[in-house]
Every structure is written in structure tokens, then in C-alpha cells.
Design a protein around this nucleic acid. Structure first.
Length: 670
DNA sequence: TATTAGTCAATAAA
DNA sequence: TTTATTGACTAATA
């Protein structure tokens, strides 16, 4: 049976061959599979090896980092020891010396960080020691009201008399300071702030391009004297390092504490009090710069924040307010000149003004029934029924607006994003300001001092070379906001005329007093300055550098080949022209800045002045929705983009015509 | 930390 | 006398 079955299913030779062939194929497939797996394995092994290598590398790096940190920790281990020693010293001297390095406890309270550190004995003791040393050096009482210049002169005299110090190698000194700062891991900002009383930028410049001692003025020598003292004083070095260590990560750059007395106290510790006295005369200027620098951005930020808030609340109550305020009592006084004074206006008032004026502006711009220029012109020409104007504006602005037209605001500026994207047409504003000033014979000086709080030269620069709104910093925008508000003020001319008269009287008075005082002015003993009849002396100011046309040509040629010259090139140019390196580097900074400025203003001025289509400048749309240039966008791109945007957002035909021409021109140029 | 933005005072030009 | 220019400075920024 089995045999029969076997016989029946027994394969033929052909079948066998087929089976063999199949087996062979299987074997081949398996071989391929094995090869593939082997290859895969190899890849995995390679990847693993790479990964392991990477991890090993990372491990090595981490180990190095740990070592560095351990070394750093090690180097700072003496902190507690020094602290303890100084505490002991303080206890020893405490009974005899009650002089505090701080002017008042409130000074300390203003900076908790500084307070923690500075209140530790090490600082106080160092400060006391130095203050004591000072007293032996300073000529005259530290509390005397002698001017900085006389103190400086006495200091210089001391330094000169000391012989070996009269000729500093400023380059070497700067190099040593650089190395020391690097070694101590102290930044230029901290060093400048606490040791020299200078800004970081100035420190950078001094260290990078130290002037020869012989070419330095008394004032210019002061930082080098301080640097020398710093390098030779272990206490100062240690203290500064401690400060830097503590401040790192806590100190907020660019924002000076509201009360800088704590910083000043530390600087007093690090410097000598005699040098600190030298700053007294600069306090006015310093505080002015302080005010400019600190309050301005902060104020504008506040303004914008408050504006945002006010806009939101006002929008909510807009409808009811229009009726409620209509019968409000009259508050505006004709002689309220205080509102013109930039410093006299509270941020809230300023914000309120911005909101009112901008809303008004938006209404005008979007209302085709109102000529875009009519309102501004009516402000500029009091002859256009001044009584009626005065009467209208004697009410609040809001009353006026509600009386004249309903508050319809097609562009909803009350949203925060739109508020932030607020854009003023700076070119139009400056054009209108210039016209108004010219028509009313008001000088830039009076306008600058009363409206913007700037000098005549700054006003001239602002009006002649306005930057586009988008290119302005917060501080820069403030001026244009003020100008914009001033343009809206119906009393602006009267107010400025009164100020002009007052100013003329004051100048006349000063001139009379001045001529009287001049008779008292005599050259001081050293011939370095003038002393008045009351014994106050001024150091003769450094004469202004006037570059000759040849020097300027050389610099321009250098700029064209290398707009950002290396320190070597600057040195070479300075040597070639016989100028100070700082003069050359300043020239390059200023030239770049002014090239940029002219790049901004020239196309716009062309647009304004070469507009044959309209007799008026482009004052119609002072407020736009800002379009920020995106990353990588060129100035021209941004300019074109904004121009194109204006086409759709501004409903003034003449403007569109001019802008179309301008866009086409620019397209051709591109 | 190098560079920029904003500003000033001195000076030139109008 | 007013306006424009420019070298120099500080604070802010990249």
C-alpha cells in the first residue's frame, strides 16, 4: 500500500529539478537577506560608534565645564574670609568713624541688590580708607562749593608735582586696564559706571583708542588718573570684582535705578572723594542727560501704555461721554502756557492730548467732506474767524468734536494693536511746523525750547532731516508727537508769541548783566581759564576741531573705500591727517549716521517739494497704520511698501497722484 | 563691546 | 539774528 502510494506520488526527474531550482532560489534569497542584515548591522554599529563618540565628547566638555566652575569656585573661596577680616576691621574703626559712605538711608533702600553687598563691611571700610586718603590730597574742604575745575586743577597740579605721574603712557595704561578687566571678568559697563563715572561706550572708546597724555585735556586725563589709581589699589580691584560678581545676572542694563545714589556711593568708594567732587560741576549736565535718557523712553512707554488704557476706557464710554461732556464747564485758560512746556505736562495729560488729537485727526482723514488740510490751515491762520475758533476751543476738545460732527471712527484705533502700530507722517509734520513757524515769524530756538525742550540745532536737524516714523526710537517719536499736538493747538501761536517776548526780555536782561560781569572776568593764574569776580573759575574749553576741506576729502575717500574702518585704518588716517584718533572715529560715526539720515530724508523731501499737483504739502494724512519692514527688507523696499500701502489707505486724490509718481520713480530706479 | 541714535555747543552760513 | 552744519558726547542697542 505504502509502496503504491510512494510510487503514485514519487516525483519525476523533472519535478526534482524544479524543486532543486526552488531550493536554490530560496538559498539565494536567504543569502541576500543575510547580506542585507549584515549591512544593516554594520550601519547600526557605525551609528552607535558615532553616537558613543559624540556622547564621549559631550562628557568631556561637561567635565571641562565642571572643572572651570570648580576653579572659579576655588578662586572665590576667599570671599568669606575677606568679609570676616573686614568686619573685624570695621568693628575696630566703628567707634571712631561714624561717617557713612551713603548720603542717606533712602539711598540704600533704592537698590536692594547693592544694599545687600554694599552694607557689608568690606565696602564701607574700603570707602572709609579711601575717603581718609582723599582728605590729605584734596586742597580745600570737601564740602566747599569750589567748582569742579578748580578741584581738577589742584588734582592735576598734585599729579604733575608727583613727577613720575605727569606723563602717563595712556596706551599701556589702557592695555593694563583691559587685561585687568578681562582677568577679573569685569565688564566695561560696570568698570565705567563705578570707577570712571563714564558710560560703557566712552570706556570702550577710551580703552580702544587712548589719546596720548600730552593731547588730553584736564578732563580727558581724569579717567586715566582714575584707572591708574584703580590698578594700583587692591581694595578697589577686589571690591569691583565683588560688585561685578554680585551684579552679574541681577544688574539690569540700560536702566538706571530711579535713585542712583547707591551707585554713586559705590563709585565714591572705588574712587576717591576728591574725584567725585569733580563731578559736581557736571551734575547739571549729567542730570540732564539722565533725564533725557531715562525719563524719555520711560515716559514714552508710559504714554503709550496709558494711551492704550485710556483709549480702551474711552471707547467703552464714548457714546455717553459725547453727550455728558457737552455741558461740561470751561476749564481751559487762555494763558495756560504750562501745557506747552514738555516737562510741565503730566504723562496723563499728554496721553489725553494724544488720544484727542489723534482721534480728531483720524476723523478728518477719513471724512471726505472735510478737506484734509482745512483744519490745519485754520489753525495756522488765525484770521479765519479767530473769535469763533477761540470760542470753540475754549471748550474742551471733546466738546468741540461732538459739536461739530458725530464721533464716527472708521479706523478703530482703540484696539491695542492699532495703537501700537500708530504711525505719524513725520515729513508732513515737519513741513507744517516749518510753514507755521515761518508764517508767524517764530524762531526754531523759541519753538525748540518751549515746545520740544530741545536746542535750536536739534530743532533744525529734526525739521530739515526728519526720519520716517518707523525708523525712530521711542525717544525720537516723542518729538514728533509733541509737534503733532502742537500743530493741533489753536493757541499755539499766541502762546509762543508770549514766550518769544518773555525770552527777548530775558535775553536783554542777560546781555546787560553779562556785559557787567565781563568786566569782572579775568584770566586765572595759570592762564588756563577765566575767573569771575566772585572767584569762580572755568577751565578753558577745548577748541572745536574744524576739519579742513582736504582733511574732509581724505576722510570721505576713506569712507568710500571702507565705511567701517579698522582701528588700524583709523590710526593711520589720524596720523596721516594729524588728528586725534577719536576725531577720526567720531567722524566716521557721524558720517555714517548722516549718510543714513540723508538717505531717509532726501526722497521724502523730493516728494514734498517737487509736487506740482498740489499747492499744499502732504499734510493730509498725518496718521497712518504702520507697516514695519520685514526682516531682510531694504530701506527702499520698506519705503515702497509703505508708499503702496498709502495708496489704499488714504483717500486723498492728490496725495495718491504724487505717491503714484513717486512709486513709479522708485520702481524705475530699482 | 562696537556701533547707533539722539543730542548739544560751537561755529559757519544765510 | 536765525538757521544749518558738524565734532563730540552719552545712553541705548545689536
Amino acid at each position: 500500500m505504502d509502496l503504491c502510494v510512494f510510487t503514485a506520488v514519487s516525483p519525476t526527474s523533472a519535478d526534482v529539478e524544479t524543486m532543486v531550482a526552488m531550493r536554490n532560489r530560496d538559498v539565494q534569497r536567504l543569502e541576500q537577506e543575510v547580506r542585507r542584515l549584515q549591512h544593516l548591522l554594520q550601519e547600526v554599529q557605525e551609528r552607535t560608534a558615532n553616537h558613543v563618540a559624540l556622547l564621549q565628547q559631550q562628557l568631556a566638555n561637561k567635565s571641562q565645564q565642571i572643572e572651570r566652575l570648580q576653579a572659579k569656585l576655588q578662586s572665590q573661596q576667599d570671599y568669606d574670609k575677606i568679609k570676616t577680616e573686614l568686619r573685624t576691621l570695621r568693628e575696630l574703626t566703628q567707634t571712631t568713624d561714624d561717617v557713612s559712605v551713603f548720603s542717606s538711608p533712602s539711598d540704600i533702600d533704592n537698590d536692594a541688590v547693592i544694599q545687600t553687598e554694599v552694607k557689608t563691611p568690606e565696602f564701607q571700610d574700603i570707602g572709609k580708607g579711601e575717603l581718609l586718603n582723599e582728605s590729605s590730597v584734596i586742597s580745600g574742604s570737601p564740602s566747599s562749593s569750589s567748582s569742579s575745575s578748580s578741584s581738577l586743577q589742584s588734582l592735576m597740579k598734585e599729579e604733575t608735582e608727583s613727577g613720575d605721574e605727569c606723563e602717563f603712557d595712556t596706551t599701556r595704561l589702557a592695555l593694563e586696564v583691559k587685561e585687568a578687566l578681562q582677568r577679573l571678568n569685569v565688564g566695561q559697563r560696570v568698570f565705567g559706571h563705578y570707577v570712571l563715572g563714564l558710560s560703557q561706550g566712552t570706556v570702550s572708546d577710551i580703552l580702544a583708542r587712548p589719546k596720548p597724555w600730552s593731547k588730553l585735556t584736564s578732563r580727558g586725563r581724569e579717567p586715566f588718573l582714575r584707572m591708574k589709581h584703580f590698578l594700583s589699589d587692591e581694595h578697589s580691584i577686589r571690591t569691583l570684582r565683588a560688585i561685578q560678581d554680585r551684579l552679574r545676572g541681577i544688574f539690569v542694563p540700560c536702566v538706571r535705578p530711579p535713585d542712583a545714589s547707591s551707585d554713586d556711593a559705590i563709585r565714591k568708594i572705588l574712587n576717591r572723594s576728591r574725584l567725585e567732587k569733580l563731578d559736581d560741576d557736571d551734575d547739571d549736565e549729567g542730570s540732564r542727560s539722565q533725564r533725557d535718557g531715562d525719563s524719555s523712553d520711560g515716559a514714552i512707554r508710559n504714554i503709550l501704555q496709558q494711551a492704550k488704557h485710556e483709549m480702551q476706557t474711552q471707547t467703552q464710554t464714548q457714546t455717553s461721554a459725547t453727550n455728558d461732556t457737552f455741558d461740561a464747564p470751561v476749564h481751559q485758560e487762555e494763558e495756560d502756557y504750562g501745557t506747552l512746556d514738555p516737562s510741565a505736562q503730566s504723562p496723563t495729560d499728554f496721553v489725553q492730548s494724544i488720544i484727542q488729537k489723534i482721534k480728531c485727526e483720524l476723523d478728518e482723514d477719513t471724512d471726505p467732506s472735510v478737506s484734509p488740510s482745512s483744519s490745519s490751515h485754520s489753525f495756522e491762520t488765525p484770521s479765519a474767524d479767530p473769535h469763533q475758533r477761540t470760542q470753540v476751543f475754549s471748550r474742551s476738545e471733546e466738546n468741540m468734536e461732538t459739536q461739530e460732527r458725530p464721533r464716527s471712527c472708521p479706523i478703530n484705533i482703540s484696539s491695542s494693536s492699532e495703537l501700537q502700530s500708530l504711525d505719524l507722517d513725520t515729513f508732513s509734520i515737519t513741513q507744517r511746523v516749518k510753514e507755521t513757524l515761518t508764517i508767524n515769524s517764530i524762531g526754531q530756538r523759541v519753538f525748540g525750547e518751549e515746545v520740544l525742550g530741545l536746542t535750536q540745532s536739534s530743532v533744525s536737524e529734526l525739521l530739515s532731516h526728519p526720519k520716517p516714523w518707523t525708523k525712530l526710537s521711542l525717544k525720537g517719536k516723542e518729538n514728533f508727537i509733541r509737534m503733532h499736538l502742537w500743530l493741533q493747538d489753536p493757541q499755539k501761536i499766541q502762546k509762543l508769541n508770549v514766550m518769544k517776548k518773555m525770552d527777548q526780555r530775558a535775553r536783554l536782561k542777560r546781555a546787560l548783566i553779562g556785559s557787567d560781569c565781563d568786566s569782572h572776568r579775568t584770566l586765572d593764574a595759570g592762564g588756563q581759564g577765566f575767573c569771575d569776580g566772585w572767584g569762580r573759575c572755568d577751565v578753558m574749553k577745548k577748541p572745536r576741531v574744524i576739519l579742513s576741506p582736504q582733511e574732509r576729502e581724505t576722510l570721505i575717500a576713506a569712507y568710500q573705500t571702507e565705511p567701517y574702518p579698522s582701528p588700524y585704518t583709523i590710526d593711520r588716517l589720524a596720523a596721516q591727517l594729524g588728528l586725534q584718533t577719536s576725531t577720526v572715529s567720531n567722524w566716521f560715526y557721524n558720517h555714517r549716521s548722516r549718510i543714513r539720515r540723508d538717505g531717509f530724508s532726501e526722497p521724502m523731501q523730493t516728494r514734498t517739494f517737487q509736487n506740482p499737483a498740489t499747492s499744499r504739502p502732504l499734510s493730509a494724512s498725518l496718521v497712518r497704520i504702520k507697516q514695519e519692514p520685514s526682516d531682510g527688507e531694504t530701506e527702499e523696499d520698506a519705503y515702497l511698501k509703505r508708499e503702496q500701502h498709502d495708496h489704499v489707505s488714504v483717500g486723498v486724490q492728490s496725495i495718491m497722484r504724487v505717491k503714484t509718481e513717486k512709486t513709479e520713480d522708485l520702481s524705475d530706479l530699482r
